[in-house]
Amino acid sequence: MICFALLAHKDEEALLQQVRNIREYNPNDTLIVLYNGGNDPDFGKAVCKSENVLYCTSSRPLQAGKTGRFFYDVMAWLEEAHISYEYLVYTESDVMFINHGFKDLLEQLMNGYDCLVEAVKVEMYPDKSNWTTAMRMWKEWHLWKPFFRSEFFYGTFNPMQVYRRRIVKRMLRRINKSHLERLLDKTGVISMGEMLYLTIAMQCGAKCQEYPRMYRKYFRYRPFISLDEVKDAKRLPEAIFAHPIKDHSVRAWISSSQTTKDTEGHS
């Protein structure tokens, strides 16, 4: 069972397109949990009801760039609700699937591993860091060091991090909730999710795998994925997902290509 933890905060139409996109390319044994990071408490509830999506009741408004707690909230909520899954996937509103094969890829790459990420970075020396996100963490390291109980931390790219439930359980046991809450209330670190989860997992003894380069061709921070790129990606079986997709025309084309495929498949 794959559980997609989906962070979104606005645009019901885009949310509906994304939910249906996840279902199209992951049709079997799939759960989707929506975390509403916006200010409208009703955002996404209609989509959840119509599309059989779980709504995380721990959702709360999040500031831009400071969305790192979302994955922790979903992890804890799933455990409290006794919801079973094998893989938990960190998914954001600007990720969409392009081709099938994600489940097969997980089973291949996660064989003998506890987590799967874009790349593993190790931050050991603040004066040698050239990663903006980590540099902000180093500035607050006097606050975070007692929480991590470590001299260094790990980092990766937020979207499409994958963790087995067995390692999630160990991570939750290690996390001091009240300590984490105090830190999250006052931190100035952005993209906390790029460091928090991988570091805790590694401290719990996780074996971590990286996505091979061939699967990351259309997976990056900037610039946004263009329509031409998505059309090119569609022709490559290894281009399973893409990020960041911000343009409505790109979303519409992906959704249309799904519909076309479904129509052709049933003709």
Rank of each mutant, 00 (worst) to 15 (best):
T30P: 05
L31E: 03
L31Y: 11
I32L: 08
V33A: 13
L34A: 11
Y35T: 14
N36V: 07
G37D: 05
G38D: 08
G38L: 04
N39C: 13
D40C: 07
D40Q: 05
D42P: 00
D42A: 04
D42M: 04
D42C: 06
F43A: 07
G44F: 07
G44E: 06
K45E: 04
K45T: 06
A46N: 11
C48E: 11
C48S: 10
C48F: 09
S50M: 02
E51I: 06
E51Y: 04
N52P: 02
N52V: 00
N52D: 15
N52I: 07
V53P: 08
V53C: 08
Y55V: 09
Y55C: 00
C56L: 10
C56E: 09
T57V: 02
T57Q: 10
S58F: 03
S59D: 07
S59T: 01
R60F: 10
R60I: 12
R60P: 11
P61H: 00
P61D: 03
L62F: 06
L62D: 11
Q63I: 09
A64Y: 12
G65M: 11
K66S: 06
K66E: 10
K66I: 09
T67G: 14
T67I: 14
G68C: 11
F70Q: 05
F70Y: 14
F71C: 04
F71S: 12
F71D: 11
